[in-house]
Amino acid sequence: MIELLLTPLHYEYMIKAIVVSGVIGGVCGLLSCFVTLKGWSLMGDALSHAIVPGVAVAYLVGLPFALGAFASGLLAAVVMGVVKSKTRIREDAVIGIVFTTFFAAGVLMISLFPSNISLKTIVLGNILGIADSDIIQMLAISAVALLVLVLKWKDLLLFAFDPNQAQSIGLNTTRLNLMLLILLAATAVAALQAVGAVLVIAMLVTPGATAYQLTDRFGRMMLLACGMGIVTSMLGAYISYFLNGSTGGCIVCLQTLVFLMAFFFAPKYGIVAARRKARRTTDALLISGDAHPVPALRGL
């Protein structure tokens, strides 16, 4: 039995996959706190799709994939900003338009110039077959993102919570906005290989959403989300060995499971706790004297 459980660890490619997934899961987990609080879920989804044409171009001309992906993600973000400021279309629709158009462009490019990249790999990820050069790119991106987050999380927090206040104490909110976008694009690029374009948004939302159900303190929320990202990603990669594929699917299934547990059973904000609280408050108010209606109000 133990032997069976240890088999994945005999393979170098499994160890690599588990470690890389853990690193990316951790960074995504940190970032997911900002994404959930700022209401940027759609943005995360958008960027992970918008990098597809960049990946295609990078492969076609032989550049590092991360470079192309990153450039195309940023371009998408800029286009969104322009369209939003110039038209009367709602922000969510603008994001939707831009990312689907970018994605369609990527799909068309790949179908026009068949090469050794498969669309399926981009969309669904393939961390078990990842090349060493890609691992280096991903680790480098993660390290930089981690560094920026550790140094700047307080500024970013204030920006996410109250941009006006951030501006009024002299922070450059345009730069912070851009910083968050760049971080998002960078981690989306890194996560792309692990879980694929479709599931990147889960890595960038679910840990933050779970942690938010569990705590009121932002510092603790970051720790929880980061920890959850690391553990679920490593465990998911490990389990995917036994299920014979879809690492991304396994990781995200685990994350969703943890989220559901938090949703139901979180000590303060869980659904069970909320029901109990409503019952208790009502009882308490009814017992205390003020709860009774002023006698004069009958029969107006």
């Binding site: 904000y269 706790a273 029901r275 109990r276 409503a278 408050t281 009502t282 108010l285 009814l286 209606p293």
Partner: peptide
């Protein structure tokens, strides 16, 4: 969310 916004209102 468990917040009692109104109680015993008559």
């Amino acid at each position: 969310n468990g917040h009692v916004a109104l109680f015993d209102t008559t």
